[in-house]
């Protein structure tokens, strides 16, 4: 398989996953906005901080209101990680390798892009709402479903999956890091009056990674910050936890040509081992913020190693 094709497939699915994650973050942001009437609104900037878009947003000179932030992250043409640009990048990468994916996969992505252009005409950016975010998530689910149901389990499939899980792990870590580590002190001692707001904040975090039901099933108890961190980092069965994403990444890397991928496999295994045998107590002792910062750096190392192993052209 051509290295260039591997790279396009990997980025195709990273961008699609990124558009979905952005939709998830914005959806939750919007529901929190309804609680946050105080209008001091550090809250509106949260999605900008999570996705590290501070510089791009500042360049627009717009006030940091919920509506502005959501419109910017959903539709802005200048911001590389806006939902719009992620969907376009997904489609462009797919188009570059349309011969290497099934026609159902290509037609699904192309359809998404065509339908997106219609939405762009019909939706007022300042009124972007839940319906649009649900649509983005649904298109992403649909593509994964089509991939699952039609693709041969060979290299194109593996590179597509690799992009999904690396992007997803990165995103989950970012949500935890910002949404959470900045708001709650590392020792997790909560004041009584914060309980109520925390309940909504924490359940929003869980919802953003589709983990609210899983939390209830696992703990059958009130939502508290420590357990939320635990389930999002260590749960082996939750498809958006760091542990799950790295289990999958490790499995996918084992399917790729061995000769060139040693370093990437080793980095993935090291990250994976820490998630398999770590505990939330150790993490809190080390400092959640520090732990997540390390994890995000590890993901960059892994991304570079994968690139060097399979995708570099020169």
């Amino acid at each position: 398989m051509l290295s260039r094709v591997a790279s396009h497939l990997y980025w195709m699915s990273r961008y699609l996953e990124r558009s979905e994650n952005m939709a998830r973050i914005l959806d939750v942001t919007q529901s929190l906005a309804m609680l946050d009437r105080s209008a001091d609104s550090g809250g509106a900037m949260t999605p900008i901080v999570i996705t590290e878009a501070q510089a791009e947003f500042a360049a627009t000179n717009l006030p940091a209101t919920y509506a502005n932030v959501i419109a910017f992250l959903a539709w802005d043409r200048q911001h590389p990680s806006s939902i719009r640009n992620c969907i376009e990048a997904t489609r462009e990468n797919a188009r570059a390798v349309r011969g290497s994916i099934t026609s159902e996969m290509w037609e699904n992505i192309n359809d998404t892009w065509i339908a997106f252009q219609e939405k762009q005409k019909n939706i007022d950016p300042m009124m972007t709402g839940n319906e649009f975010f649900e649509w983005v998530k649904e298109r992403s689910h649909l593509f994964r479903g089509v991939t699952f149901a039609t693709a041969r389990r060979d290299q194109p499939y593996h590179f597509t999956r690799l992009g999904t899980f690396i992007e997803r792990a990165d995103n989950t870590a970012r949500i935890l890091n910002v949404k959470y580590a900045e708001e709650a002190p590392d020792n997790f001692e909560e004041k009584e009056q914060d309980r109520e707001t925390d309940y909504y904040r924490l359940s929003a975090v869980l919802r953003s990674v589709s983990a609210l039901e899983a939390y209830r099933d696992t703990y059958r108890d009130v939502i508290d910050a420590r357990r939320v961190a635990e389930i999002m980092i260590f749960d082996a069965k939750l498809p958006r936890s760091l542990r799950y994403c790295m289990d999958e990444t490790t499995l996918v890397l084992d399917e790729l040509p061995e000769s060139s991928g040693r370093n990437a496999r080793r980095i993935a295994a090291e990250i994976n081992v820490r998630l398999r045998y770590g505990t939330i107590d150790e993490v809190l002792e080390y400092g959640l913020k520090r732990y997540l910062a390390d994890f995000l750096l590890d993901m960059v190392r892994l991304g570079n190693a994968v690139n060097a192993a399979y995708m570099e052209l020169h």
Binding site: L2, R4, P257, Y310
Partner: peptide, 19 residues
């Protein structure tokens, strides 16, 4: 594409994930 190919000792090769 052109960038996928290279010439070495007057033979043409493509760059793949397995070399």
């Amino acid at each position: 594409e052109g960038q996928d190919l290279f010439v070495k000792d007057d033979f043409v090769y493509m760059r793949t994930t397995s070399g």
